[in-house]
Every structure is written in C-alpha cells, then in structure tokens.
C-alpha cells in the first residue's frame, strides 16, 4: 500500500475531528424535548446504564441535557466567532491599508476593548441588551476580535512592502484589485485557522457567562446552567451533575482546539509536510 503523505494524514485527522463535532451537534438537535422532561421518580440517580450521566435533582436525564447544551454552545461559538472574525478582518485591513490616523484609532479601540477584563465587558454588554441569547452573542462577538485583528494587520503590513505587490502597483492595479487578488489568498488560510481557534474561547466564555446567570434563561439546557444548578447539590454528595457535563464541555473545547491546530498546519505550506 502506498504510504500516505503527511498532508493527507493531517487532512484525514482534521476531517475526523470535524465529524465528531458535527455528530455531537446533530445529536443535540435531534434529541426530542421529551427526553429532557423530568420525572421525580428518577430524581438524583447516579450514572447507570439507562442514564449514563445520571439524572439531576428534577429527574431529567443529564446526558440528553448535556448534549443539547453542547449543541447550543457550538451554535453560539460558531455565530460569535464568525462575527468576531469578520470584524477582525475588516478592522485589521482598514488599519493596515488606511491612513495613519485610522491606524492609530484602531489601535486605541483595541487597547480600549482589551482594557476591560473580557468577562466584565461581556457581563456589561449582556446587561445592556437585557441578558439572554442576543446579549450573550453580542458580548462574545464584541470581545474576541482584537488579537485576530492585530494578526491580520501585521500580516497585511508585512505583505504590502513585498516586491510582488510593489510590482503589481507599478503595473497600475488598484488597491482593491491587489486586496482581492494578492492579499486575500495570502490571508485566507491564516484567517480560517484563526477563526477556528476563536471557537474554544467563545464556547468557554459562553459557559462561564451562563454559569454566572447572565446568558441563557435557566430553562434552556446549557452547560453553564447545569453546572450552576449542580452547585446546590454538591454538598449532598451529588457529584455527577458537576463532573460529567463539565468534562463533556472540556472534551468539545479540546476537539475544537485540535481541529484549529490541524487546519493551521495543513494550510500553512511550511508545516503541512512535517
């Protein structure tokens, strides 16, 4: 059998990771609402065969709730990091291509956003928008673009002084044409990897903010809410509502992180064959 080269291996691995994530997402969506309805007969069961994660104090199956919560988390992660990455791309390019004043203004705004602790800023935005899903999404999207914007800015600045772009300019191509045909193809891979690497942060912040009671309403199945409820029963010795959903969240975050790393390595020609 022909030996697969490293690039193919990385691609297969990345596809596998993405497949697992899609599976979790689909399971969360497909599980019917009935499965998370509680029955008090089954309240507070430790993990067993019919309830692998056990049941909570209201008798709801924790595995179903966790999966539903994870798919909510993944949705929030995708939307928030997509919006955030869009902002980062626009701001980064504007900062690198624009005038000196634009650049200074953008840097000042980045310093401003970085100047308030992220968690506090998300709480503030969520408060301003009356808590709930919108506030959560806006808060996460508004706080996560800074580092990616800096990356894009640095990359564009570096490329702009490269000979091939100078030549292109001498040949009379407009700024927009250069952006579209030279800079975007160059930025694409890094941008994509940066986007995927935003997911884990977005998901972690979603869970934290829901845990604090700001994000989703308490009847929604979110990991943060399950964990926050579990605190009440912790001293009674109910360990499973605290440990297992959190571990599932950690698993998803790690998967996302690995996926981002793999993508970055595949897309970067220097490391793709390593």
């Amino acid at each position: 059998m022909k030996r697969k080269n490293q690039r193919t291996k990385l691609l297969v691995l990345a596809a596998g990771l993405a497949g697992v994530l899609i599976l979790i997402y689909a399971l969360g969506l497909l599980i019917p609402e009935k499965a998370v309805e509680g029955s008090f007969l089954e309240a507070g069961r430790p993990p067993c065969l019919s309830h692998p994660f056990g049941t909570d104090a209201l008798g709801r199956d924790l595995l179903a709730r966790t999966l539903k919560g994870l798919s909510v988390s993944i949705t929030v992660g995708i939307v928030a990091s997509g919006v955030s990455a869009g902002i980062a791309l626009l701001v980064g390019i504007a900062s690198a291509m624009g005038s000196r004043q634009v650049d200074a203004a953008v840097n000042w705004i980045i310093d401003l956003v970085m100047g308030i602790p992220h968690t506090v800023l998300i709480l503030l935005i969520s408060f301003a928008l009356g808590r709930g899903m919108t506030g959560l999404l806006a808060g996460i999207a508004a706080t996560h673009w800074c580092s990616l914007a800096r990356l894009v800015r640095g990359e564009v600045l570096q490329q702009r002084s490269r000979p091939y772009i100078m030549v292109s300019r001498r040949l009379g191509k407009s700024g927009g044409w250069i952006l579209l045909h030279h800079l975007f193809p160059h930025l694409g891979p890094q941008f994509l990897a940066g986007l995927v690497l935003l997911f884990p942060h977005a998901i972690l912040h979603e869970a934290s903010v829901s845990f604090l009671g700001y994000g989703l309403p308490p009847e929604q199945p979110a990991i943060g809410i399950i964990l926050s409820e579990s605190m009440r029963y912790l001293s009674a010795g109910m360990w499973w509502p605290a440990v297992l959903p959190g571990a599932a969240l950690l698993g998803v975050v790690l998967l996302m992180d690995r996926l981002g790393e793999q993508l970055r390595r595949v897309l970067d020609p220097v490391t793709a064959q390593e």
């Binding site: 972690l204 869970a207 943060g224 579990s230 912790l234 440990v243 959190g246 969240l249 790690l254």
Partner: peptide, 22 residues
C-alpha cells in the same frame, strides 16, 4: 498545559471543591 488552558475555570473550581471540601 493545553488541557488546563482549555478548562473552564469555574468547572475546575467545582472539581476542587468536590474533592477537597466535600
């Protein structure tokens, strides 16, 4: 390091609470 930086801080707190206090 990678695992710890992906761990939600509040969950780690819950785990420590569970193990060392409860």
């Amino acid at each position: 390091c990678y695992v710890l930086s992906s761990t939600p801080a509040f969950w780690l707190g819950l785990l420590l609470l569970l193990v060392f206090s409860v």
